[in-house]
């Protein structure tokens, strides 16, 4: 039994969720091999080799792998799959894009977005936007799995010295082309891993009003989230969306401002440790899951919040 795990990276450094997935995989089997496919990504391969839970790094280099086009990366993974019992990636837009392609070519029924590992073939995963948890058992000999990274701790990053094996590239079908990626660069912590998240909803009324949220985020070193309604209205870009069809976050503190609390939004944040809701409608469903609810107009509450934070001598970061 060995595991083939696909690393997510940007060709210069490893994306942190890969560490959570490595840790989760170690609950299935200790023999973890990590594929780093990319373009001039030696540094990523070295980074992965230093992770103590990793036994071997498979490094394959080609311009065709630079942007992780599913059509290009799948033949490589399918070829490597032979020696492994589990093929694993994270259940974010990275893993969701290519893993089903790999699974179908191997004639495997994929298990998506698992939160708990009961045994090497039995897992718990959320269904119906997290309103039910299903325990499922896969009868396929080989398994294709995507893991919900926020449900597992990250693996430690230093002290390991796995070998790095060069892997030959595999022909690509040449049916797709990467054009560009518009990435919002920000100094703030990443939404998926931030300790504090403050999110705005339709109640914010405009993109400009998000400056009220930004000021508090600066103070708390928080990431900024949003409801789908706020993204749809153009207040903020799609990478901020939290929920069933957005990102899943599990911060120590989640502050929902002007968000009603639709089940599709809750799906992405209700595992947060402490939830705060600021909403002027006392009946809003968000209050039913909030540890601390403040029934108030956000345009009064947010400036006051900032003022109170300014009064504190210390703030955890």
């Amino acid at each position: 039994m060995s595991i083939l795990l696909i690393a997510e990276h940007d060709n210069s450094s490893l994306k942190v969720f890969t560490l959570n997935v490595i840790y989760a995989a170690s609950k299935i089997n200790a023999d973890i091999h990590v594929l780093v496919a990319g373009n001039k990504s030696e540094n990523v391969a070295k980074e992965v080799a230093a992770v103590p839970l990793v036994k071997k790094v498979l490094y394959s280099e080609s311009p065709n792998y630079e942007n992780y086009l599913a059509e290009n990366i799948t033949p490589l993974i399918v070829k490597l799959a032979e020696g492994y019992t589990h093929i694993i990636a994270s259940a974010n837009t990275f893993g969701k894009n290519f893993m089903p392609r790999v699974a179908a070519l191997l004639d495997i029924s994929q298990v998506s977005d698992i939160m708990t590992i009961n045994s090497p073939d039995t897992f718990v995963r959320p269904i119906y936007a997290g309103n039910a948890f299903a325990t499922v058992k896969s009868s396929d000999k080989k398994k294709c799995i995507t893991i919900r990274p926020t449900s597992f701790d990250p693996a430690p990053t230093s002290g390991g010295s796995a070998s790095i094996e060069k892997i030959d590239v595999v022909d690509i079908p040449n049916i797709s082309k990467f054009i560009k990626r518009e990435e919002a660069k920000s100094e703030r912590p990443e939404l998926g891993t931030a300790r504090v998240v403050i999110s705005g909803g339709r109640g914010m009324q405009s993109g400009d009003n998000f400056k009220l949220i930004n000021a508090i985020a600066d103070k708390l070193n928080a990431a900024i989230g949003a409801s789908r309604a706020a993204v749809d209205a153009g207040y903020i870009s799609n990478d901020h969306q939290v929920g069933q069809t957005g990102k899943v976050v599990v911060p120590d503190l989640y502050i929902a401002v002007g968000i009603s609390g639709a089940i599709q939004h809750l799906a992405g944040m209700k595992e947060s440790k402490i939830i705060v809701a600021i909403n002027k409608d006392g009946e809003a469903p968000i209050f039913s899951i909030a540890d601390y609810g403040l029934e108030a107009d956000l345009f009064d509450a947010l400036p006051q919040f900032l003022e109170e934070l300014n009064k504190l001598n210390t703030i955890q970061k």
Binding site: S109, G130, N131, A132, F133, T135, V136, A290, Y292
Partner: peptide
């Protein structure tokens, strides 16, 4: 190929204040 062994309710959050 995937057998659903059990479907359960997720743990409920205890109400806040």
């Amino acid at each position: 190929r995937i057998q659903q062994l059990k479907v359960e309710e997720p743990p409920k959050r205890k109400g806040g204040i």
